[in-house]
Design a protein around this nucleic acid. Structure first.
Length: 415
RNA sequence: GCUGGGGUAGGCUAGCUUGGUUAGACUGGGGGACUGUGGAUCCCCCGACGUGGGUUCAAAUCUCGCCCCCGGCCCCA
């Protein structure tokens, strides 16, 4: 039997209905924040992703040649494509530009808990603005999204990569080795960082100060430890968040986002219930457009790992209630079978979601089916009622039923 | 790329250690008991040993390769 490829999944109706509902929640939040949706191709010129990536990224890229010998790749994330689209067609639009996206991304990795080769990201970018308000909007929306989905147990942490980069440069780390140091700091592997830093001639006391900086975690009070403009900047961001009622954030200067295009504020959210792959959201401010031939434009963006956040919700026991349909039409006997199709059609034309038996079932079995598809009402079509231009309407939840004139049926069901 | 565990109907599972009737149960699906009323009960039916090789008179069972699933490492845009 042919199965779906490794790391991919079929989403059967029960599951997909749930996913669509939560996707709708995220879309709704984004729209409430003034974002508009954007869609880009699922595959792009491989160069688009290679331009900003190291070798590790490259080997996980689904890259291939098309019949015209073009080097293409399935998108491993969406930010690059959105920035490309911005450079290509939105760069002269009124600023700020606020866009969101939802779609699948592909990475050739070993599947694991919360990690798939085809996975879904919901993200947003604000382009053309570089203010604390901008960053606050992005963080607030991320927080809002998580809360709207009903997830309780998560941590949202804000850091500043500029502060770290500055400090690392100040203590004498050469620019080309910054990433190496950041990587160790990200994982808090100080013992591994020490020899590397010592090798670069960094003083012991400077090292300890650096480690102390990345260990700086807490509320706004810890910002007193952050020197210079960046400290003031973060204070502003947090102040705006506070005015928006966003209280579920903490400062953590140890937040280090993977790639080096991030320039200032960075943030991430994690759900501890998820285990190894617990990060559910990540983002920050960056400049990328100049890489793709545009002018330098400051942006802030983030992406939510849709699959992971759903997994976290599931682990918290959040249950999705199946939507069902408004009405299931049942014919009492074969002589009114065709009349029952007229009734279902009338309902459908009037905006009622309605289904009907097409397997020749008798009344009892059809009623049973009506409850398995979660119909709110059963519309029972029988010869007696029809002679009075009426049907019997049964509320499937309460079991109450009454005769309703056909002319009033839509109104009663919608009411 | 490294590593641990696993794969029996659509779902969950017994059998595997010690090879040997027609692979059993529950759930699900279809039909009936039940020709004007769902969720109950009873009966009948459908439906599975991931895949390919090896050992053997005989393989779900032992063995090897592959595929896939669940975790962990690496990586994580």
């Amino acid at each position: 039997m042919v199965q779906c490829p490794r790391g991919t999944r079929d989403f059967l109706p029960d599951e997909l209905e749930k996913r669509r509902a939560y996707e709708g929640t995220l879309r709704s939040v984004a729209r409430r924040f003034g974002f508009r949706e954007i869609q880009t191709p699922i595959f792009e010129d491989a160069e688009l992703f290679i331009l900003r990536s190291g070798p590790n990224v490259l080997k996980e890229l689904y890259a291939f040649k098309d019949k015209g010998d073009r080097e293409l790749a399935l998108r491993p994330e969406m930010t690059a494509a959105v920035v490309r689209a911005f450079v290509n067609g939105m760069s002269n639009d009124p600023k700020p530009i606020k866009v969101f996206y939802f779609g699948q991304c592909f990475r050739y990795e070993r599947p694991q808990a919360g990690r798939y080769r085809e996975f879904f990201q919901f993200g947003a970018e604000i382009m053309g603005a570089a203010t604390p308000e901008t960053d606050a909007e992005a963080i607030a929306m991320a927080s809002f999204m998580i809360k709207s989905l009903g997830l309780k147990n998560y941590k949202l942490r804000i850091g500043h990569i500029g502060v770290l980069r500055q400090r690392i440069a100040d203590i004498g780390v050469p620019k080309e080795r910054t990433a190496e140091v950041l990587q160790k700091l990200d994982k808090k592997l100080y013992d591994e960082a020490r020899p590397i830093l010592a090798d670069m001639g960094v003083k012991e006391s400077d090292m300890e100060d650096l480690f102390k900086l990345t260990e700086t975690v807490g509320g706004t009070e810890v910002l007193s430890m952050v020197p210079g403009e960046a400290g003031d900047y973060l204070r502003e961001v947090v102040d705006y968040l506070d005015h928006m009622g966003v209280k579920d954030v903490e400062i953590d200067l140890g937040v280090v986002r993977g790639l080096d295009y991030y320039t200032g504020m960075v943030f991430e959210a994690e759900a501890p219930v998820l285990g190894a792959e617990k990060q559910i959201c990540g983002g920050g401010s960056y400049t990328l457009s100049e890489l793709f031939g545009g002018e330098k434009v400051f942006s802030t963006g983030f992406a939510v790992g849709f699959d992971r956040i759903l997994l976290a919700m599931e682990k918290e026991g959040i249950e999705y209630q199946r939507e069902g349909i408004d009405a299931y039409v049942v014919a009492v006997s074969d002589d009114v079978r065709k009349d029952s199709f007229s009734v279902v059609s009338m309902l459908r034309e009037n905006g009622v979601s309605a289904d009907i038996d097409i397997m020749g079932r008798k009344l009892g079995k059809a009623m049973k089916f009506a409850s398995t598809v979660c119909a709110r009402y059963a519309v029972i079509v029988g010869a007696n009622e029809l002679s009075r231009k009426a049907v019997t309407l049964r509320n499937m939840e309460t079991g109450e039923q009454a005769e309703v004139p056909l002319d009033d049926l839509v109104k009663t069901i919608k009411g």
